[in-house]
Design a protein around this nucleic acid. Sequence first.
DNA 1: TCATAAAATAACTATAAGTCATTTTATAGA
DNA 2: TCTATAAAATGACTTATAGTTATTTTATGA
Lengths: 216, 216
Amino acid sequence: MGIAERREREKQQRQQDIIDAAERIFFSKGIQQATMDDVATEAELSKGTLYLYFKSKDELYLAITLRGIQIMTELFQKAVQKPATGLEKAFAIGTAFFTFAQKYPNYFDALSHFELDELQFDDGCILATECSDVGQGALNILIGALKQGIEDGSIRNDIDPVRMAAIMWGMSSGIIQLTALKGKHLEQEHGFNMEGIVEESFQVFRCALERKAENE
Amino acid sequence: MGIAERREREKQQRQQDIIDAAERIFFSKGIQQATMDDVATEAELSKGTLYLYFKSKDELYLAITLRGIQIMTELFQKAVQKPATGLEKAFAIGTAFFTFAQKYPNYFDALSHFELDELQFDDGCILATECSDVGQGALNILIGALKQGIEDGSIRNDIDPVRMAAIMWGMSSGIIQLTALKGKHLEQEHGFNMEGIVEESFQVFRCALERKAENE
DNA sequence: TCATAAAATAACTATAAGTCATTTTATAGA
DNA sequence: TCTATAAAATGACTTATAGTTATTTTATGA
């Protein structure tokens, strides 16, 4: 049944086209200001058609969020390719996270809002579940790096990798939100550059992860 | 002019009453679901009257946010009363921050959203400015503690207190968002308790703040 | 060529934020 | 006490926009 397959492909393509249009509108005007009519016009479709593909405006934004999380996860996967030790991998992931936030601020923003408002989506929302799952996959990469580090001796062995990954995740998110959102303000008011903040944050993590001296 | 003063007092009181009503509505239904008509009914006023006191729904929510930030700042002020050293004060502030988030989750939620969406308010918005200012005051308490710690020798002297305060602020916010929002989920899925996460986060900070051994 | 199903449309409804002409209330002066 | 005026409050109204649905268009297979 080649036709059925083609139609399915076209349907998928149309869905992606709608997300493309929604991205352009949402990212340029801001989600609050953007309307579904805007998106429909941008996608060269009627508004009703949008609702054939997405249940609501929130769900359409969630589709964009998922894209962001997927991109981030891919960056994490690439980041752990080269480094040898677990510690180095952990820092490579950290760097990738900051790079992601800088390169795709709109996706990072979407991610932040998702994490803050995740509970508002019910369990039936497939896209929300997928966002959670893919996000968990990203976290698993970090957990894996920490585990490896404990084994290869580059990371202290008195930490629980899952707990520490959660902590690093939360802390990194917080730092990036700070730098990404208030970066310019902090630079102007306090005169310190954001890369320095990020660098210093890494020092904090290094201190927490590295094996303590034997004489302690 | 005793009458003018009384009227001013009454006006202030009414404003507070509206915020009270809005809190009950917003906190129970959620901001998205709550309507200004709901608030008006709860406040036993007409909707038009609400708009005599607040320019918009967002601004009304900002008034609630400000309350939260003020409460948090007061907790910080109390927290630094007892401890002697700067390091102890810093940790007392950290504890106060976590306590605040646990005791007033709705205020913490408001604070998180404010930090994430702060830029959407223009400079003319007095309430937004006030939130920023009071929030800066809270941060200044932490900065002061770090400065004192550097002087009294309880905190290593190779850090910049302002930068480190910003980092600790960002990281703490991130951790609390993680524990406050996903706490139950993490407990069920991964079986670790939130207090442990918070405790371990403190260890990370301790490691970053304490003076290194002399032999390094 | 026609019947059918899938896809798309656009006019429609519903909801809720925000406004404004009007009414009510409180106060100061006659 | 009565009245003019200003402040405060009202609620019906406007506007904006998310979401729905009856209808139309298009593609497919017999």
